[in-house]
Design a binder for these strands. Structure first.
Lengths: 165, 165
DNA sequence: TGCGGCTTTGTTACTCTATACCATGATGCC
DNA sequence: GGCATCATGGTATAGAGTAACAAAGCCGCA
C-alpha cells in the first residue's frame, strides 16, 4: 500500500506552483472568514504542507515536515488540523490512498471526484456533470439516502502515458 | 475510524443467509476452476468469513475468527488470502472502511459500486448503468487512461431510515 | 482588568491496518 | 526423485488513526 510513485508539483505541465500555494492560502483565509472559522497558524501551516504538491500527502508525512520546522507535533495535531480543513472544504481526503489533497474550489461545496495517476501520484479533481446526481437518484430508487460519495479513478495521466512511465 | 455500527446478515429484509454463504463458496470454486487458480483451505475459510455478513469485514476481524478456529494465523495469512480473493474477483475492498466484502457476481468482471449504510453497516453492491463508462470517457477527454475505479456512497438504507436509526 | 467559558493545542499511550522479509512446506511437472 | 513454483508460517515493523486528559490561548463581559 505504500505509495511508491513519485510526487509531482506539476499536474498539467509546468506551472508556477508557488502561486498555487499562495492562492490556496488566500482563498482559505477568505473561506474561513466567511464561515467565521479560525485559520490558526497550525492549520495554515498544515494547509501549506498539503499544497506542497498536487499529489495527496499522508498525515505522517505532514507530521514529519512539521517537525522539520522545529515544532514538536504529534499525530493528533495533524489530524485535528486536517479535520478542520476538511470541514471547511479546503482539503479532501483520498480514500484509496489514506491521504489528503488541497481542494482547488473551496468556495463552493461540491462532491469531489478524482483522477489519480499511478505513475506520478498526482490527483486531479474533476466534476463529471450529473454524476453525483445519477448516483444519488439510483440510490434513491433503492430506498437509500445518500449522505456522501467517493469517486476515485486510478490510472495514468496523459503526461505519464507519453513518458512511458 | 472504528466501525461502531452493527453488522447485519440481512441487507434486504430477512433471508436465508446460510444460503448466501454456500452459494458464494460454490461459485468461488467454479470461478477458480475456470481461472486455473487454487482455492485452498485457507482461502476458502477466509472467503467464508468475509461472507459471514453483508457488512464489510476488517482483516483483523477475520484474523480473530480464524484464530477461534484454532489456527495460529498471523496478519499476512489473512492479507494474502484476501489479495488472492480480490484477484479472482471474489471479494471487493471497501476503501472508505478499510474492509472487505464478498462479491455477489464473481463470474463476470465489473466495476463495483457500493451503497454503504452508516447505521447497520451493510454494503450493497450495485451497478449504475453507464456510470463506469461515463467516468472513463470523461477521463479520456482529459487524456487520462483509467485502470480502476472506486465508487462508494454512504448514507442510510431504507430499512434503517424506517427504524429511525 | 480580571473572571469564566469556549476553542485550540500538547502529550501520552494505544488501537487498528498493512507490509517486508526470511524460512518452511506443499504441489505439480518432467 | 529432483526441481521450480506456489502457498503458508512467523517475526518484526511500518503506517494510519484515535482516546483521554492536561494545559494554554482567545473572547466576551461584568
Amino acid at each position: 500500500m505504500a505509495l511508491t510513485t513519485k510526487r509531482s508539483a506539476r499536474p498539467h505541465g509546468d506551472h508556477d506552483h508557488a502561486h498555487c500555494v499562495t492562492d490556496a492560502i488566500a482563498r482559505a483565509e477568505a473561506v474561513c472568514a466567511e464561515h467565521g472559522a479560525r485559520l490558526t497558524e497550525n492549520r495554515r501551516r498544515v494547509l501549506e504542507l498539503v499544497w506542497q504538491s498536487h499529489a495527496p500527502v499522508g498525515a505522517y508525512e505532514i507530521l514529519e515536515r512539521l517537525r522539520k520546522d522545529g515544532t514538536r507535533a504529534a499525530p493528533p495535531t495533524v489530524y485535528r488540523a486536517l479535520e478542520f480543513l476538511m470541514e471547511q472544504g479546503l482539503v479532501h481526503r483520498i480514500e484509496t490512498r489514506n491521504a489528503f489533497v488541497g481542494c482547488p474550489q473551496p468556495e463552493q461545496r461540491h462532491v469531489a471526484q478524482y483522477l489519480l495517476c499511478e505513475a506520478c501520484g498526482d490527483a486531479v479533481e474533476i466534476e463529471i456533470g450529473g454524476l453525483a446526481r445519477k448516483i444519488a437518484s439510483r440510490a434513491a430508487e433503492l430506498g437509500f439516502a445518500v449522505a456522501a460519495q467517493t469517486v476515485e479513478a486510478r490510472g495514468l495521466c496523459s503526461r505519464c502515458q507519453q513518458t512511458g512511465a
